[in-house]
Computed example of a mutant assay.
Amino acid sequence: MADTFKTAQNRLAAVAASLTGGLVGASHQFPAFEDLPKVEGEPQGCIWGLFDKEGKKDEVGTLNLLTPAVVLAASREICTGEHVQLDWPLHNVQFPGFGRKEFSQTKIDLVESLNFKAMDDELYINTQSGSQWDSLKHFAHQATGKYYNGLTHEQATQSDTNGIHNWCERGGIVGRGVLVDWLRWYEHKNGKAPSPVSRHEITVEELEETLKWQGTTTRPGDIMLIRSGYVRWHDNASDSERKSGTQDNSVAIGMQGSEKSVRWLYDHHFAAVAGDTVAFESWPPKFEEGWCLHEWLLVQWGTPIGEMWDLEKLSNLCVQKGRWTFFLTSAPLNVKGGIGSPPGAIAVF
């Protein structure tokens, strides 16, 4: 099996190198979804091995698309210098779901211990309980137990492979951000939007209509953000509504998990994706159908997923500017083997 897997990796790299069309990130090319060489034990569409170099397994996935040329092109989005941070305050998720601990802060007076009038603070953060990036070792393919590029669950628990530190060592995440303001489009067209704490599925057709309505065109290597209304709901909900919607019921709005969604995401070749909802995709996924977006984005392609980003001020600024593209920077926590991190994300216009 190991030889078969290696052969598939070599074939994938060879196919990508031989193509003349589909230039991505000024240095990467992709076969069509159907033409990707089969990787033993994985579904059609797996790209393991595409970014490997000199026999070393890649650990950053589609962030490889953020080449200096792509970043330089993204910098041309900066026109006025206005900027907005996309991290929700760490304390905002009052009732974290999935049994996770809430954020806490301890403020420390240093007068007695150091004889200085100064202060420290100590924080507890579960990196999945607020604005976050999911690393490539956060979520495995549930049937095979493998993470990006063939890392097994046992290996993941005993190593730093695929950790977020790899993103930091390559300079963080910097590129062109694209907001797909589905919520604003939906309310403009249909009135009241579906509840963010329902399992409403945002379809590819709706995303395409939103982009057309905004007059926005995506490019390979973009960082796509989808606004669904979850953060707006949470900011305006009562304590009891928050507890019911976030802790008592693990159900949330998001992008539809389907073959059409997977193919659309693959064809657009995003460097990373993010949203303002709990899991980016509609949750819980239908694992038995084989189209869980966590399994495709994180596992098959190595595409980081951002969740619970605050896109409210960004949405308003995009309307004010009449454009939904911007320069985006993100500095995750530089933790060796990190599994999740607040994004430290800033959009600049």
Results as ranks from 00 to 15, higher is better:
Pro196Trp: 09
His188Gln: 15
Pro196Asp: 14
Gly191Val: 03
Lys189Thr: 15
His200Asp: 11
Ser198Gln: 12
Glu201Ile: 10
Gly175Lys: 03
Arg184Asp: 07
Asp181Thr: 02
Ala193Ile: 07
Ile173Gln: 02
Lys189Ile: 13
Ile202Val: 13
Trp185Val: 03
Asn190Leu: 03
Gly177Glu: 08
Trp185Lys: 04
Asp181Gly: 02
Leu179Lys: 06
His188Trp: 13
Gly191Ser: 11
Gly191Gln: 07
Arg184Lys: 09
Pro194Leu: 11
Trp182His: 10
Arg176Glu: 00
Ile173Leu: 08
Arg176Cys: 01
Val180Phe: 05
Ile202Ser: 03
Val178Ala: 07
Arg176Phe: 06
Asn190Glu: 06
Lys189Ser: 14
Ile202Phe: 06
Trp185Asp: 04
Leu183Asp: 00
Arg184Glu: 02
Asn190Ala: 07
Cys168Val: 14
Ile173Phe: 01
His200Phe: 15
Arg170His: 08
Val174Gly: 00
Lys192Gln: 14
Gly191His: 09
Asn190Arg: 09
Glu187Lys: 12
Val197Trp: 12
Leu183Phe: 07
Glu201Gln: 15
Arg176Asp: 02
Val180Tyr: 04
Ala193Gln: 11
Asp181Cys: 02
Pro194Arg: 10
Gly177Phe: 09
Arg184Tyr: 01
Glu201Asp: 07
Tyr186Cys: 01
Lys192Val: 13
Leu183His: 10
Gly191Asp: 11
Glu187Val: 09
Glu187Asp: 06
Arg199Trp: 04
Ser198His: 08
Pro196Ala: 14
Cys168Ile: 12
Val178Ser: 04
Arg199His: 08
Pro194Thr: 14
Val174Gln: 09
Val178Phe: 02
Ser198Asp: 12
Gly171Trp: 01
Pro196Gln: 10
Tyr186Arg: 14
Asn190Tyr: 14
Ile173Ala: 01
Gly191Met: 09
Val197Pro: 03
Asn190Pro: 01
Val180Gln: 01
Asp181Leu: 06
Gly172Val: 00
